[in-house]
């Protein structure tokens, strides 16, 4: 049975939704980190400071099967619930 670590990177405030979805799909727990994302805009001129948006990173450790279920559930929720997109990375864990 393969173990994986899932990192879901979402805008600030969406971590709770991700976790709710993950719990429905059988995750047993999650850890949330605060982070900031990159600002892709090329700022110029006065008031040209960059705004790096606040993000949350949700870490869930689970088996490949559960990860698949979680991702499907998250997709289902985020497709209709949320205006914003996020990314999920899956890392092999030992």
């Amino acid at each position: 049975m393969d173990n994986f670590t899932m990192l879901a990177i979402v805008p600030l405030g969406y971590a709770d939704k991700v976790i709710a979805a993950a719990n429905e799909a059988g995750a047993s727990g999650a850890t949330i980190f605060r982070a900031r994302g990159a600002d892709h805009t090329h700022a110029e001129g006065f008031l040209s400071f960059k705004v790096e948006p606040e993000e949350e990173i949700v870490l869930i450790a689970a088996t490949g099967e559960v990860i698949n279920a979680i991702c499907a559930k998250i997709h289902e929720k985020f497709e209709k619930d949320s205006a914003r997109d996020g990314s999920i990375y899956i890392l092999p864990a030992r």
């Binding site: 499907a72 997109d85 996020g86 899956i90 890392l91 030992r94």
Partner: peptide
């Protein structure tokens, strides 16, 4: 660097796209 086993965009993908080149992951 840590090899990624899979990636998904929450709004666009319905399932994880597992990396095929990731055989070396273990």
């Amino acid at each position: 660097t840590v090899p990624l086993a899979g990636i998904m965009k929450m709004k666009r993908d319905t399932s994880v796209r597992w990396s095929h080149t990731g055989e070396s992951q273990h």
